[in-house]
């Protein structure tokens, strides 16, 4: 469990980092918090020839509300979100989820954007990004593109990010007070990756009817997924306890669960039903 040999670069600016990425191509990898990359290298499952450490690039270290969106720079650490980074439902949801990510020492190093780039299917940030419709700002030498969350996740640990690209920023919509966000996660030990998680967002109109609904599930398939049928079933009516239950049941049926020795498929469906209902109920409780 020692890393294979690699070169190490510590650029001081975004431009320098992009140049290094262009130069090293497939052989290079960005090192952000290192909380996923370094263990993967220790197991020799990843063996980049060059590490491009972005931790000294001050211009990437920010998290600010701007024009209705929360802009999260590549060096914003998980721990930053434990306290409200913005008023309203978005900030509260992030704070709620942050405490579920690993343990304090890991949260002080791991980054929000690193989680999105790593794309663990059980990542809280990935699930929230999909639920709220995040947008990724991706840079490469001489180019830039914006990728909506719906197009970002390809499969386990795989995104649309190219080898020469840097995820410079992710942004989330700052939801208004008519939105209610919910979060529920199941894991066996505090700080473990989720066995199942649900992120929900409901918009209630003046009459108390559901006018908008998003439900995302994490840890249950190769990527975070949207439970669209379940969300649609909530629209146009008050979120009664029976309707939440019915939506949760739909969420549990509407996907192909990943299976492993410890988590059979039907158990994962049980968890999705429970987490979805709890997230929805929790979001309406306050």
């Amino acid at each position: 469990m020692k890393c294979p040999p690699f070169d190490y670069h510590a650029p001081r600016s975004q431009a320098e980092a992009l140049a290094l990425l262009a130069r090293h191509g497939e052989e290079g990898k960005i090192l952000a918090g290192g909380q996923s990359l370094v263990p993967t290298m220790a197991f020799r499952l990843a063996r980049p020839a060059s590490l491009i450490d972005i931790n000294r690039i001050a211009e990437l270290d920010y998290c600010r509300a701007e024009a209705g969106r929360l802009r999260i720079g590549a060096l914003a650490r998980h721990a930053r979100f434990e306290r409200l980074v913005a008023p309203g439902p978005t900030g509260a949801l992030l704070a709620r989820a942050a405490e579920h990510i690993a343990h304090a020492p890991i949260r002080t190093r791991g980054t929000f954007c690193g989680s999105l780039a790593h794309a663990d299917p059980a990542s809280e940030w990935c699930c929230i990004a999909l639920a709220l419709g995040a947008e990724m700002r991706v840079l490469r030498e001489g180019g830039e593109r914006l990728v909506p969350a719906a197009d970002w996740f390809q499969s386990v640990f795989t995104t649309t990010l190219g080898h020469d690209e840097l995820l410079a920023e992710a942004s989330l919509p700052l939801l208004g007070p008519d939105w209610r966000c919910g979060f529920a996660e199941f894991n066996r030990r505090a700080g473990d990756f989720a066995v199942a998680m649900a992120v929900t967002a409901l918009r209630l109109d003046a009459a108390g009817h559901v006018a908008g609904a998003r439900i995302a599930l994490g840890g249950v398939a190769g990527t975070p997924i949207l439970a669209e049928a379940a969300a649609a079933a909530l629209l146009g009516a008050p979120p009664t306890s029976d309707r939440l239950r019915a939506a949760a049941a739909l969420a549990a049926e509407g996907f192909e669960p990943t299976e492993d020795a410890q988590v059979p498929a039907d158990y994962r469906r049980d968890l999705v039903r429970a987490m979805t209902r709890r997230a929805l109920e929790g979001s309406l409780a306050t």
Partner: peptide, 11 residues
Amino acid sequence: LADYLPPSAAE
């Protein structure tokens, strides 16, 4: 230790 699960203080 992601698959073999000794307890943490929280458990």
